[in-house]
Write a protein that binds this DNA or RNA. Structure first.
Length: 180
DNA sequence: GTTGAGCGTT
């Protein structure tokens, strides 16, 4: 039925244009600074985020680049997609997600459900916690769409673990812009 | 300089 059909707003394969670009297939050694250098040629950025593995601290090989203006992100998408950067052919597309997940607090923040109201046991903690957390997480994750208008400001200043001023110049400047 | 195809919770 039509009423159940989701309004078309892009998909994984064909994301709608927006100011956030996903950059994939990166070399593990490409830094946020490198990306800023490349992508700021298409317009002012508000942020760059390489995604790191939480355990190892290594880049997971993809990143997100935030533009101030959607026209610039369009330009960047069209020109930087397929560009070679640090020896890798990178893929650039509009991001599906808009920002990093907000860490979950680990406690249930919502309204009590019938299940928990009726449980006569020791109310709070222990075994129920796990169940509550997953319940909470699902609802929380559904709220992503609300962040489309979120005024994302890039503030993080901690150094990327793989950036070093001792990196060899030869490797770090080896991207080749496309010409049309 | 794990060789991949990956949409984010440092």
């Amino acid at each position: 039925p039509m009423s159940n059909r989701r309004r078309h707003t892009g998909s994984r394969a064909n994301p709608d244009p927006n100011t956030c670009l996903g950059v994939f297939g990166l070399s593990l050694y490409t830094t946020e600074r490198d990306l800023r250098e490349v992508f700021s040629r298409y317009g002012p950025l508000t942020g760059v985020n390489v995604v790191y593995d939480q355990r190892t601290g290594r880049s997971r090989g993809f990143a997100f680049v935030y533009f101030e203006r959607i026209d610039d992100s369009k330009e960047a998408m069209e020109h930087a997609n397929g560009m070679e950067l640090d020896g890798r052919r990178i893929r650039v597309d509009y991001s599906i997600t808009k920002r990093a997940h907000t860490p979950t607090p680990g406690i249930y923040m919502g309204r009590p459900t019938q299940f928990f109201l009726n449980s006569s046991g020791g109310g709070g903690g222990g075994g129920a916690g796990r169940r509550r957390d997953s319940y909470y997480d699902r609802g929380y994750d559904r709220g992503y769409d609300r962040y489309e208008e979120y005024d994302y400001r890039y503030r993080r200043r901690s150094p990327s673990p793989y950036y070093s001023r001792y990196r060899s110049r030869s490797r770090s400047r080896s991207y080749s812009p496309r010409r049309y």
